[in-house]
Structures are given as C-alpha cells and as structure tokens.
C-alpha cells in the first residue's frame, strides 16, 4: 500500500463511520416502534390462531356434535377425548371435550375439518398455566365468550 493510498483509506474509513453515525442519529429521531407491552397491547388480527373455543348456537347449546372430525384432523393429538350424550335431544351434543394446549400446533386443521363451525381459534394468544394440568382444557374452559355465540 502506498502512502497516498493509506491516507485516502483513512479518510474514507472515517467518512464511512460518520455515515453510519448519521444513520443511527436519524433513527433516533424517528418515532419508536416498540410497544409498552402489558399496558399497551399489540392489536391482534381477527384471523389469529390462538386459544380454541367452542361456539354455541342461538339456543345456547353447543354446536359440537362430537363427530370426531377435529380429532381425526389433528396432527398432534391435541384433542384426545371427545364424548357426546346419547341423543337425548334431537341431535347429539358434546359432553366431554378435551383440548391439550401444550400439544397444539395452532395449525387450524381442526377448525377446517369441523362440519358444523363449532370450534374456532381465537385471538387469545397468552395461554399460560402453573403446571401441565392447567394447559389441558375441558369443555367448561373452552366455552366461547358471549359475543362469540353466533357465528
């Protein structure tokens, strides 16, 4: 490397670093992109694949008829148990339904498989528990909120 090259190199190097400094400065002047999480929730889109819920028909009864379509569709056996009543009413309805959140891949194949639109994945993404049993949901904990009643 000749002397002049070295000099030019040093100057250009310094300039390139100054350029970088300017980039960080302009970014410091931009509005912040992070959110203050627990106080400022990120908007979750409607189609979000979160916690599973069971929907109820207009009569308030579960839509699920325990047809086992979701169980068969599930790739990871996250829906191990479904039992219906013995057709006491006009149609069969689910009595026992277990969803294991710790096994769920949240792929939505069960929702697609359901012929009655009885289940849905919701926007609830924070599924936490203190032990494994807390992540196994039975029918009582799977009932959808009141506004989700009619599909």
């Amino acid at each position: 490397m000749t002397r002049t090259n070295l000099f030019v190199d040093v100057v250009l190097s310094a300039l390139s670093i100054v350029k970088g400094l300017m980039v960080t400065l302009t970014n410091a002047l931009r509005p912040r992109v992070t959110r203050n999480h627990p106080f400022q929730k990120t908007p979750i889109p409607e189609v979000w694949r979160g916690r599973l819920v069971h929907l109820r028909g207009e009569d308030g009864r579960l839509r699920c008829t325990a047809c086992l379509a979701c169980q068969k569709a599930c790739p990871s056996h996250a829906i191990p148990t479904i039992q219906g009543d013995d057709k006491k009413g006009k149609e069969k309805r689910a009595q026992v339904y277990v969803w294991d959140a710790s096994r769920c891949l949240f792929c939505g194949l069960c929702v697609e498989a359901c012929p009655f639109d009885a289940i849905r994945l919701t926007r609830e993404y924070s599924i936490v528990g203190e032990d494994r049993a807390d992540l196994i949901f039975d029918l009582n904990r799977l009932l959808g909120p009141a506004e989700g009643e009619t599909a």
Binding site: T24, N27, A28, V33, T34, N36
Partner: peptide
Amino acid sequence: ADLQSRVGPN
C-alpha cells in the same frame, strides 16, 4: 434504545 428505535428503561 434511542438509536435502536426502542424505548429503553421506562
């Protein structure tokens, strides 16, 4: 935090 578009301790 400022340079990285974050908030930092708050």
